[in-house]
């Protein structure tokens, strides 16, 4: 009985973390200083030198941030280019391949800095926290986040099963080769 109660308390505490949110978001100018490499290749045997501060886990493990990200994905017209993850003018985001890396810090960089073949840069157009929220939501599309925090319903036309019901995938480096990479420039 007592162990059960303790277990319940622990469980509900864990649930608290799932719902945790910061009281005040970062101001526009403040941006987290992760150091990301776009490749796994680097001279020597150390691999690329990267700094990931751990901030990412606050977002990938948090349902509130992902549902905020899901709203922003529409409000910022990301869905106009990426549809509900299947892509269109932009590349698909729900598949298992990533051109610019599939860890949350990479996705944050993608949104912040833009990418050469048509991904706009949102630096200064969105507060840093919202960029992280969007990035966490992007990861939930391929269920690269825990099932219990991924959004579990679609508000509009049911385009595909909700994010939480997608099979979990491990992203690989790859993705669409952009036409400029294929073409004899």
């Amino acid at each position: 009985m007592r162990t059960l109660a303790i277990a319940l308390v622990l469980l509900s505490l864990a649930a608290c973390q799932r719902e945790e949110r910061a009281l005040r978001g970062d101001p526009m100018a403040d941006e987290s200083r992760e150091k990301i490499a776009l490749t796994s290749l680097s001279p020597g045997d150390s691999g690329p030198i990267e700094v990931r501060t751990g901030r990412g886990e606050e977002y990938t493990g948090n349902a509130y941030h992902q549902s905020e990200g899901k709203k922003l994905f529409k409000q910022m017209n990301c869905n106009g280019c990426h549809a509900n993850g299947g892509g269109g003018m932009g590349v698909p985001l729900m598949d298992d391949t990533w051109i610019y890396g599939g860890r949350i810090e990479n996705v944050v960089q993608t949104i912040r800095e833009g990418r050469p073949n048509g991904m706009p840069s949102f630096r200064g157009k969105l507060p840093d926290e919202q960029i992280w929220q969007l990035a966490a939501y992007v990861l939930s599309m391929s269920r690269a986040v825990p099932q219990d925090v991924a959004p579990s319903r679609d508000d509009d036309m049911h385009p595909r099963p909700a994010e939480s019901r997608q099979p979990a995938v491990t992203g690989v480096q790859g993705g669409t080769v952009p036409p400029s990479g294929e073409a004899p420039q």
Binding site: A83, G85, G86, G87, G88, M94, G175, T176
Partner: peptide, 20 residues
Amino acid sequence: GAIVAGDLDPRDGTAAMGFV
């Protein structure tokens, strides 16, 4: 033909503005 030219994900019916 965007589904092939852009390697779109066929699971999302709304991809390529619904053509997928």
